[in-house]
Design a protein around this nucleic acid. Sequence first.
DNA 1: TTGCCTACCTAACGAACGTTAGGTAGGGTG
DNA 2: CACCCTACCTAACGTTCGTTAGGTAGGCAA
Lengths: 200, 200
Amino acid sequence: MAQSVANTVLVESGRDRILDEAAALFLRHGYEGASLRQLADTVGMKAGSLYYHFASKDDLLTEILRRGIDVMQTAFDDAEAASADARPVARVEAHVRAHLSALFENGPYTAAHVMTFRTAPETVREVVVPLRDAYEARWTEMLRLLQADGALDPTVDVNVIRLVLFGAMNASVEWFDTDRGNLDRFAAAITGQFWNGVGA
Amino acid sequence: MAQSVANTVLVESGRDRILDEAAALFLRHGYEGASLRQLADTVGMKAGSLYYHFASKDDLLTEILRRGIDVMQTAFDDAEAASADARPVARVEAHVRAHLSALFENGPYTAAHVMTFRTAPETVREVVVPLRDAYEARWTEMLRLLQADGALDPTVDVNVIRLVLFGAMNASVEWFDTDRGNLDRFAAAITGQFWNGVGA
DNA sequence: TTGCCTACCTAACGAACGTTAGGTAGGGTG
DNA sequence: CACCCTACCTAACGTTCGTTAGGTAGGCAA
C-alpha cells in the first residue's frame, strides 16, 4: 500500500497517465499515426476502456493541446515574475528559458502541441486557436514594449522576429537532447544569437 | 490537341501530378492523415490506379522526401555559384534565400519534407537520412569556414546556430504567406536577425 | 489489321481504425 | 450485508485503410 501509493506518484495511473502517454505517442508518430489500441497497450488497458475517460480521440487531442498551452502560460508567468525588472536581454533570456522549460521539462504536452497542432483536425484547432493566440499575444506585447523602450532594434517587425524565435525554439524538440545538452546554456546561446547575432 | 498539350504543360498529368498533389496533401494533413483515396480523388483517378506509378504509399513518400532534398541541394548549388566570392553576410543571405526558395518557390516537396520527415515510418527515414545529412553537412561546412575565417563569432557552436537557423526557416512554412510577404525581404530580415541580432 | 504497351478501371481482400453496448470485479458507503 | 460507483473488460459494429488481381480502352508499331 505504501508501495501502491508510491507507484501512484512515480508513474501515475488513470486519466493523467493516458494523457501523458498519448501526448508522447502523438509527438512521435503524429496524431493520425498513433492509434488508440497502441495507446491502450502502453498504458496497460483495452482500447474501449479509454472511452471511460475521454469522449473521443479528438477530445483526447484537444485536452493535450490545451495542457500544452497551460504549461507554456505557467512558464511565462514564472519568467515574468522572476525577471520583471531585469535588463531587457535578461528578460528575454528568462522567457526563452521558460519556453524551453515548457518544451522539455514539464511533460510532453507543449512539445506535442507545437508538433501536432498544424495537422490537427480543424474542429480541434478551432477550439485551441484562441488559447494559442493569447499566449502569442503575451510574447508580442513583451517584445513590443522592449521596442518601445528602445531596447530592441526599431526597424524590425516584432511579429516576424517572434515567429522566427518561436520556430527556432520549437524546432529544437526535434534535435535537442536534454541528456546531452544543458537547457540553461542552450537558452543563453539562443538568446545571445537572438540579441547579438553571430557575425564577428 | 493544342489544348491538351497546353494542359499537359500547365497542370501536369500522370506521375509528376500525383507526386505534386501527394506532397501538398502530406504537408497539410500529415502522412498518415492523408489517404490514397483522397489523393486519387484530387488527381482524378481511382486509388488502385496509383499503384501503376508507385509500389506503395511508403514508396510515394520516399520519393517526395527525396525530391525535397534535391530541390534544396539545387538551390544551395545556385547560391554557392552566385555568392562564391561575396562578403560573408551576403553569402549567408544568398543561402538563406535559396533555402526559402526551396521551401516556397519550387513545389511542395521541400516543405513536405521538413514537415513530414519527423513522423515518417522508420523504414522510409532510413533511406532519406543520408541525403539529409549530406545537405546539412554543406551548411555546416560553409558556416565552419566562415568561423575559421573570423567572420563568425568564434564562441558559438556552428551546429547549434545551424539548427536554430534551420528551425526558424523551416517553421516559416507554417506562417509565411508568399502572397502577402516578399521572400527577398524576408531572407534579408532573417539574415539580419541571424547576423546582427535584434538588440538595440 | 494485328498486336502490344501504357494508363487507367472495377471490384474486392484482409487488416486496422474509432467507437459503442453491455457486462463485471472490487473498494467505499449506508 | 446490501448497494453503488469507479474503472475497467469483452466483443463486436461499421467504416476506412493500403493493397491486389484481373480487365480494358486507346494509341503506336510492325
